[in-house]
Design a protein around this nucleic acid. Structure first.
Lengths: 231, 231
DNA sequence: AAGGGTGCTTAAGGTCGACTTAATCGCCCG
DNA sequence: CGGGCGATTAAGTCGACCTTAAGCACCCTT
């Protein structure tokens, strides 16, 4: 059973985008485009985590937070806009388990969601679908907390983009990741002709650092015409 | 028998939220929305810990603290508003065991409650794992009680902000702390473009005082594009 | 076997973050 | 009211990192 996540944002584009990323992560996503819909969903359904936009036309996010807390203990992450008055934002985000400032990188949001679920499922009542802070595969080890990577025990220093690429591929190991998806997850921008090359150069640097030979790669393999995969 | 906790805050929303979080942790929670109610509860009931808002319409939080201390020894944690630099010192010197600045993360509050209860119950009937007042790592030693720091045994004098930064990094050792998180934790304000530089200057002073070279740091290491880490 | 598309490599340039230094602001205290 | 200390802001340098471009190698199709 996958974790169920409630996403609340009146901006359809943002809500849908977030929904897509979370779905790709293997979550069951429910989207509400208004505070009213969200309130209804909160009362009628069970979730493992909620993502609330602070600014809603009908109900503000803080009220929804209270609605949730009245009968549930699952983590709540608030989405706040950067422009609005900071004091108000702080007040509103009071009581949330975490909050993310818009615009955010998809990977950052995903990371925070995972972090909260880790804490919730390990301390809470639910059976643990243990999301470990360190990811291990073959001789490759990724520590999310420290953002560190080791290959056969030897530490490897990666740049932010290299790390993001590796993490995304590792978290989707066993699945082919289209270059387009990879680009959007890491850069949070639309894929353009030419972006392809950018990704490739980073892949190359990455492979160099983790000791991967493009001709006979141990970790990051290319799927011709589609993208990359870690098996 | 669960520990009993008294929560005092005139803002119903906040008090209720705190109550929910504590209940979820397994505590018996009693909430007072006014200083008068709180005073009554203090006299009539026994508690293991109290959370007091400093700003109350009718009675000052410090007065409640005195009321408690007149006949009880259980830990008291003060909730202070943003501007708290002065309140902090005053509250502590007046006998509060800890303070939490609003807005706070629920997890932080819970952690402090647990810490205080551990200390309190370890002196009482219940044997418990001791909460170490001093944090040690390599040659760095941080004494929370005395707010003092030594490097290889040599005392180092830090300003409040420097100390806060070091303490936060030390408490999260092994994890990369994003500059934004660090800023929010120390300043209790939202991160703005330009805050970055402020953090850096303090990091520089800090490194200077603890004998850290930015090029090859022993304690505070930088993770490019993200933040800082003590390993 | 040839050709077009795709992936790999290399190198150069531009950008951005980290560090440093120094000047200014604000506050407490004498 | 001025001195001193700490906090903040500004400006400048340096180096790491990212992007872009171009040529080469490889794969797949016909």
């Amino acid at each position: 059973m996958n974790e169920r996540i409630l996403v609340v944002d009146d901006e359809k584009a943002i809500a849908d985008l977030v929904g897509i990323y979370l779905t790709k992560e293997g979550f069951d996503v429910q989207i509400a485009y208004s505070g009213a819909d969200a309130a209804k969903a909160i009362l009628e359904q069970e979730f493992d985590l909620a993502l609330l936009d602070v600014m809603l036309p009908d109900i503000d996010g803080f009220e929804l937070l209270h609605t949730i807390r009245a009968s549930h203990t699952y983590p709540v992450i608030m989405l706040t806009a950067r422009d609005a008055q900071q004091d108000k934002i702080e007040g509103l985000s009071l009581g949330a388990d975490d909050y993310v400032v818009k615009p955010f990188r998809p990977l950052e949001l995903i990371a925070r969601v995972h972090a909260q679920l880790r804490r919730y499922t390990s301390y809470g009542s639910r059976a643990q679908a243990t999301e470990l802070p360190t990811l291990q595969l073959d001789g490759l080890e990724i520590n999310r907390d420290a953002r560190s990577v080791t290959v056969d025990g030897a530490p490897v220093r990666l740049t932010p983009i290299e790390y993001s690429i590796l993490l995304y591929l590792a978290e989707h190991r066993g699945s082919v990741v289209p270059v387009e998806d990879l680009f959007r997850a890491v850069w949070n921008e639309d894929f353009m002709p030419g972006s392809n090359n950018t990704v490739m150069v980073h892949i190359r640097h990455l492979r160099e650092k983790i000791g991967d030979d493009a001709q006979k790669p141990r970790f990051i393999k290319n799927v011709w015409g589609v993208g990359y995969i870690i098996e």
